[in-house]
Simulated scan of single mutants.
Amino acid sequence: MAIPMRSPAAERRRPCIGDVVVALLVAAAAVALLFALRPAPSQYLTAHIVLDGETIAEYDLTTLTEPVTLPLDQAPYPLTIQIEPERICVLESECPSQDCVHTGWISQAGQQIICLPDRLIISLTGSDPVEFDAISG
């Protein structure tokens, strides 16, 4: 009767010091990438509200001075959007999943609120002020 051969990897049961070092290096690289790839805050923030593929409203959130409540009764599931200076959210919705409401406030360029049953997308875009070195004409 032959005894089955065990591989050297099967003999080792505990992680060795090299395994711990590699795991720490991967974790450190992930944290470094997280901070390095964060978007820079923009000075001009615009909210684009698209319902069923059609842009229905755009708001410049940096110049907004008071809150705006935007009811969307024409959506399949009526909802209400709350717009404040520097942020926006879906305040209430009659859609079944309520994911758009649970997303909460968004306030950075690149963030989105999506309601699939209503086919609604609220996205934030931002830009920095353009500074000119010279103008030739």
Results as ranks from 00 to 15, higher is better:
1 M>W: 00
1 M>V: 01
2 A>G: 00
3 I>N: 00
4 P>E: 00
5 M>K: 05
6 R>D: 01
6 R>N: 06
14 R>K: 15
14 R>S: 14
16 C>H: 10
16 C>V: 11
17 I>N: 15
18 G>W: 12
22 V>D: 03
23 A>K: 01
23 A>P: 01
26 V>F: 14
26 V>M: 07
26 V>G: 01
32 A>R: 04
35 F>Q: 07
37 L>S: 11
40 A>Q: 15
47 A>Y: 05
48 H>F: 15
48 H>I: 04
49 I>M: 12
53 G>A: 05
57 A>I: 01
59 Y>V: 13
59 Y>C: 12
60 D>I: 03
63 T>R: 15
66 E>N: 12
67 P>T: 09
67 P>S: 12
68 V>D: 08
70 L>T: 02
73 D>I: 04
74 Q>Y: 01
74 Q>S: 10
81 I>H: 06
81 I>D: 02
81 I>N: 10
83 I>Y: 15
85 P>W: 02
85 P>V: 00
87 R>V: 07
87 R>S: 13
87 R>H: 13
87 R>Y: 10
89 C>I: 02
89 C>N: 07
90 V>M: 10
91 L>Y: 06
91 L>G: 01
95 C>R: 03
99 D>W: 02
100 C>V: 09
100 C>G: 04
106 I>S: 01
107 S>L: 02
109 A>F: 04
112 Q>S: 10
115 C>V: 05
119 R>N: 12
119 R>V: 03
119 R>I: 13
122 I>M: 03
123 S>M: 07
123 S>D: 09
125 T>P: 01
127 S>T: 11
127 S>N: 04
128 D>W: 14
129 P>D: 13
129 P>K: 06
130 V>N: 10
131 E>M: 06
132 F>D: 06
134 A>Q: 08
137 G>T: 14
137 G>S: 05
